[in-house]
Design a protein around this nucleic acid. Sequence first.
DNA 1: CAATAGCGGTGCAATTTTTGCAACGCATAA
DNA 2: TTATGCGTTGCAAAAATTGCACCGCTATTG
Lengths: 295, 295
Amino acid sequence: MKHLKTFELIESVMRAGSIRKAAEDMNITASALNRRIQGFEREFGSTIFERLPRGMRLNPAGELLMQHILSQRTDMARVQAQVADLTGERRGHVSIACSQALLPYFLPEQIAAYRLEHPGVTFSISVRDREQAERDLAAFRCDLALVFEPVHMVEFEVLHTFPQAVHAVFRADHPLAKKPELRLRDCLTHKLVLPSAPYGVRHLLELAATRKGHSLTAVVETESFELIRHYVTHENAIGFQIPVGLNLKAQSGIVHRPISEKDVPFGGLLLGQKKGRALPVASAKFTQKLIAALE
Amino acid sequence: MKHLKTFELIESVMRAGSIRKAAEDMNITASALNRRIQGFEREFGSTIFERLPRGMRLNPAGELLMQHILSQRTDMARVQAQVADLTGERRGHVSIACSQALLPYFLPEQIAAYRLEHPGVTFSISVRDREQAERDLAAFRCDLALVFEPVHMVEFEVLHTFPQAVHAVFRADHPLAKKPELRLRDCLTHKLVLPSAPYGVRHLLELAATRKGHSLTAVVETESFELIRHYVTHENAIGFQIPVGLNLKAQSGIVHRPISEKDVPFGGLLLGQKKGRALPVASAKFTQKLIAALE
DNA sequence: CAATAGCGGTGCAATTTTTGCAACGCATAA
DNA sequence: TTATGCGTTGCAAAAATTGCACCGCTATTG
């Protein structure tokens, strides 16, 4: 798109930090790029970069402009996708920042199902904790975020909330497997495999334990939910996970049981977007599918 | 702003209805304009005009694009105003579509007060009924709308609601002037000067009258609120108006009294903008002032 | 029914705009 | 101190845009 070329160049300069590097990235000469920046600043009515001895950096006006550039680009993409939608074939791209828990079973299934109907739609998925996810939304690095118990919420517009009980995960031959629902105290007497501090499940467990006057001690603490799931098959310990991250069909030797809401409150799995933004068609449609699937 | 030139040209073709007329408006040749449109359609990936024997008209894709063009233009203006705001001096333009009632006293006062603080801000005010006001918002023909009892509300995002009682207006020597508050039945025995059907005050009065089993018969019915206010000085009749349209200080021989809420419900004077749009700085600041003043 | 007027589209040359190259002045880093 | 990397500028080459003349088409009009 030609009339957006200047914006691309400005963005490139911002990323590269200097005109010369950006010029190389964009395959033009530094002088040409320089003059485009200068020309834009002239008609914009204000400089947008501060000139440092080592390069260029956005000034406050530039920061403001950059927000506009990003939003305007995605909005144009949305318009083009809507137009493509008019002609019947749905095209577009959906980028999601999501919690780890959704990677193994849930998202692959949903995406595959969606792509079966709309092969023209592509996806990019990045794994982010709840803080990073919100930052990615704010910076237009993704369209959607699907995170458990998010924190800040200032740029986050909730599209839907799915309550999720914390589940305990253990081997099928574990004595707790006989109960349909567990109490927190049932678990604390066993060896625990816990997600590390920044994660929502850990947060909920800590809260619950503190309230009951207990404390959590992990035999293994990790950032990887996958490791948790697999570890319990080797040592007869208890891991924790939310149901959306678990395979609902019986999996080789592993079972999971919900922990009573009386002890550990339901956490919220939140689907959201950047506040006030108009989502691309593909993302909006995928959102609907996702909500339907998670209900 | 150069990179928006193509958008301006597209808009011009839309308005003119043909390339040749638009070319004349924009002081270029038809062939140049033609090729710019074609070039844009090529990189946009779809035609945006349908070619008729008598000229050009936007096709559905073009309608979609036009929405983007309008929103992107105003957003760029907002960014520029924000940047100007950074440097201290506030500049910008506020365009308001408002009900007639605000013209004589309220808006002039508010605007003058605001311009005293920010002489760089200019205003345009157009008088619209509640339906037109919303259409103007949707088409980006104004930033704000201030209307009484609006109707559709689909594109209208309410920024603030001010309840307004319907007031009766009459000569100071009218017998009703002795009461501090009137009942509807007090008024119906007198000669009535009513606003015509599309207006909110009339609507509220009709509702109230019907509910009580009465009907309204006007000796004079008009679209002009100003005429209503002045007519009652000539014939000893009763007019109706909302307080924001009345001068709170004593005016030559005219008084107004509220009609009891038991008979005629409070109407809403609504301040709103186009749904989801980011307002220009000047409009946003003026909005704050307006809300403070109307409280 | 034919003439006409108005429309969008195109080939080609003129013109305007953008780009690349080389060089300059400057500030930091070695 | 020297050297490196930065933004910037003059000037010529290259590219894109424009204007002009003209085509084919269709709906209006006499």
